[in-house]
Design a protein around this nucleic acid. Sequence first.
RNA 1: CGGAGUGUAGUGUAACGGUAGCAUUCGUGCUUUGGGAGCAUGCGAUCCGGGUUCGAAUCCCGGCACUCCGACCA
Length: 429
Amino acid sequence: MSNNKYFLDGMKQSKLFSKTRKEGPKDEVSKNANLLIRAGFINKEMAGVYSYLPLGLRVMKKIEDIIRDEMNMIGGIEMKTSIMQNKEVWEKSNRWDDAVVDNWFKTKLKNGGEVGLSFTNEEAYSNILKQYVSSYNDLPLYPYDFKSIFRNEARSKSGILRGREFYWKALYSFSKDEKEHEEFYEKTKIAYKNIFSRAGIGDLTYLTFASGGSFSKFSHEFQAITNAGEDTIYLDEKSGIAVNKEVYTDEILESLNLKKDKLVEKKAIEVGNIFSLGTRFSEPFDLKYKNEKGEQKLVIMGSYGIGLGRLMGTIVEILSDEKGLVWPVSIAPYKVHIVELLSNNTKVKETAEKLFETLVKEGVEVLYDDRDSRAGEKFNDSDLIGIPVRVVVSEKGIEKGEFEIKLRKDGKVLSLKENDILDFVNQYK
RNA sequence: CGGAGUGUAGUGUAACGGUAGCAUUCGUGCUUUGGGAGCAUGCGAUCCGGGUUCGAAUCCCGGCACUCCGACCA
């Protein structure tokens, strides 16, 4: 967003329809949804279903940009699979029947036919690529998409951490053989690490061994440590490797070379996971290629997911404080929050307006609190919304020829001359 | 899907079976102007459907919704 010179990215708060609230809704216990609703980032529609308001959407898009960047760097190719799914396709892999998959949302066409709403993408990709993959020259392939996913969960909970409708990134790997698959699998571990670091929770997110399914001993989860978590993991703090409770056995610990007495039990949120699919889907879809010798071989698949809403919620759980949200610079809805204090001196508004225009022209993403409200309310709102850099424009500052800067993360305060403010703020672009 | 609980203005809360009140938000006017100011004034609500009763937010039945615990999952 910030490097697009043709799109000036500033917002006057008087034009932002969302408003902050002193109190969270009573039917929302989770910290993430409570704060995000209070700050006007999301709106609850029903259990497990949230709309994203302007500020929330901006955060979501930044997270999306980070993930896209990392996926593209390891060879991902973005596309978009449909949300409405064809029954016949899912019957091939035996995942249409409600007795097999009980969290489908299904609906009927006018002519009586059935369709399902996507709850995952293996079938969609396998079915599409069947048309295009026929030679070893066509592989490997790493398509992915960002998409809304629908799961008829018996119980949604924890705000945006577990919804019935959620937005995710799903990448699938289509490899010629196990070796090629493994190499890519290892690359995604690094890409995932990068994503969580860039999103601000890298130091609390650990690669975790979890149950694997029929094609590999383990799958791998990325677990972010927080008491709000639903999962229990056992972490070796030295190596940064963890084991999910579901595979926490003596035998497995030994195979991973982990000592039981060195592990600490932690609550964590699964913010991403990757797993090997082997030929589970290439077989029913007859997804094969011809190798150099002209032999037909089954494609080896892998799956790599991240729930964006869940990631956003996890970041809120981990980074927010008693005053409200605290966004890392990388995903903050805006980088700078200009807070203009009310004054009879018209110079205050003029100065704030001018600063806003200057910063926006420089390509800084700015939210400008131009509202006709008192200082206390503005400061509290600013804390709640959690933009990294606050610039206060006041009569007091103007007399001194200075702007007051306050950093949301650590509360650090500094004064800057008008000429220095651009350089300072540019660090946060 | 099992268990528990809760549904009152936009939001948060009160009301023994008897005038639906308070706070905040919002509108208007005045005062105020560096951490959710003050005064005045106004708008705005009992989840839906039945039943009991002279009378129901309140009691009973049914439905729906939401929250929490469990089972299940990005």
